[in-house]
């Protein structure tokens, strides 16, 4: 749009004073200001979850994704370090079957049943996911419904950082989505074609079918 005299917007990024132009994102402002050591930038469209920032407006402190947040006068921005490695471990191939999943879930994520409903995760989610409600569903074994709530999750793990019970909601969400596909997605059109290929219906060179 025509903004030949875009207003100048002063802010600080990682302690450096920056004069940005109105309409810039925090990432663009960091580039413009030549702020050193800004590493967590990736897709620039809010889906890779890398550019996690802490924002301070007076006494109000929030978190966000820098590539999707626009500059505001006086705002203090700090780029957060990458999240640490997850503490919950599982390999989906080791689950016996769909009957086994609920028991295994509570072994792997024992904290999930202890949500204290503090809303920390919900407040920190840049995708407006009702993380707290999804955790309740997961703890009740409703993995399909819980996973569906994480549909727009970008794995920024800001919710993990906010959770006082160390539930790791982002990884719980992914667990829910993965077991739903792994145990329940059985599309007839795909299975039929795989079967035709196995029987040699089509002459295609390539990998042997099947594991």
């Amino acid at each position: 749009m025509s903004d030949s005299a875009a207003a100048s917007v002063p802010l600080t990024i990682n302690g450096t004073a920056v004069e940005a132009l109105a309409g810039m994102t925090l990432v663009e402002a960091a580039w413009r200001g030549g702020v050193p050591r800004v590493r967590g930038v990736g897709c620039l469209e809010g889906v890779c979850g890398s550019c996690r920032v802490l924002l301070r407006r007076g006494r109000d402190v929030t978190v966000a994704l820098a590539c999707q947040t626009f500059v505001e006068p006086g705002i203090e921005v700090v780029f957060l370090p990458a999240p640490s490695a997850p503490r919950h471990h599982y390999e989906i191939e080791e689950f016996a079957d769909g009957w086994d999943v609920q028991a295994r879930f509570h072994e792997i994520f024992p904290e999930a049943a202890r949500c204290r409903h503090c809303h920390g995760c919900v407040r920190s989610c840049p995708k407006d996911i009702d993380v707290e409600a999804a955790i309740v569903l997961a703890a009740a074994g409703r993995f399909r419904d819980a996973g569906a709530m994480f549909f727009e999750c970008v794995m920024c793990e800001l919710c993990d950082g906010a959770c006082p019970e160390q539930i790791a909601p982002a990884h719980v969400g992914l667990f829910c989505r993965r077991v739903t596909a792994h145990f329940h997605l059985r599309p007839p059109n795909l299975i039929h074609r795989l079967e035709e290929l196995r029987q040699g219906r089509y002459d295609v060179s390539g990998m042997p079918q099947g594991e």
């Binding site: 739903t180 596909a181 792994h182 795909l190």
Partner: peptide
């Protein structure tokens, strides 16, 4: 087709 099956096994919807 086998790539899609493999992705589903990894947990892709």
């Amino acid at each position: 087709p086998d790539a899609i099956r493999w992705l589903i096994r990894q947990g892709m919807q």
